[in-house]
Design a binder for these strands. Structure first.
Length: 175
DNA sequence: TAGGCCATCTGGTCCT
DNA sequence: AGGACCAGATGGCCTA
């Protein structure tokens, strides 16, 4: 695992505004490069086309170009939403230092193991509680527990906890 | 400088 | 038909 502390610190130091500025800058650069590209291809097309055919094509090209730009914008918005969701997920995963920004793949992997460890913990606790209360183990909680054991095996609980805490540890180490 | 991560563009496919 | 979703390509930034 790659060390992230420096980059993460740098990212946090730069506030949201700076980030937005950067994004805008990137966007402007992209637009400029697209315009350059367009001018190049435009010149090429101009040399090939003539008369009304040329006018029609230009109109069609402009229309197509406009649609493309619109769908690019929508795609950008969609990706921003996705990134917001990633950020929200990062914020609910405990025991990770705030400045240690997780990558997307790290976020997903850690979240998966966290959910697994929580699930097995809850099932263990509810099963133990119900068994001591009614002594039969016939309650729905312990049925659920038995089902979980059939699916996962008895040692899975400790495995999940170990896996999760190891992962947390490795992120803390920045390894 | 190589490699990882990310944002964006793009064309294809699916869905409403 | 038009928007949403997806995956590949590309290029920029950052770190070791």
């Amino acid at each position: 695992m790659k060390t992230k502390s420096k980059r993460a610190k740098h990212r946090l130091a730069a506030d949201k505004e700076a980030f937005l500025e950067k994004t805008t800058l990137r966007k402007e650069e992209t637009v400029k490069s697209l315009q350059r590209k367009e001018r190049r291809t435009g010149r090429k097309n101009e040399s090939r086309q003539s008369g009304t055919v040329k006018a029609k094509r230009t109109w069609k090209d402009k229309d197509r170009r406009l649609r493309r730009l619109e769908s690019n914008e929508r795609e950008r918005q969609r990706m921003h939403k996705l990134n917001n969701a990633f950020q929200a997920l990062r914020e609910v995963i405990p025991h990770v230092r705030a400045e240690n920004k997780l990558s997307k793949i790290e976020t997903l992997t850690l979240a998966k193991n966290y959910i697994k460890s929580l699930t097995s913990t809850i099932l263990h606790m509810s099963s133990g509680h119900l068994l001591t209360v009614d002594g039969t183990g016939a309650a729905s909680g312990s049925k659920l527990y038995r089902h979980y054991q059939q699916q996962r095996g008895e040692d899975e609980h400790d495995e999940q906890l170990k896996k999760y805490s190891t992962q947390i540890h490795s992120f803390r180490q920045g390894s």
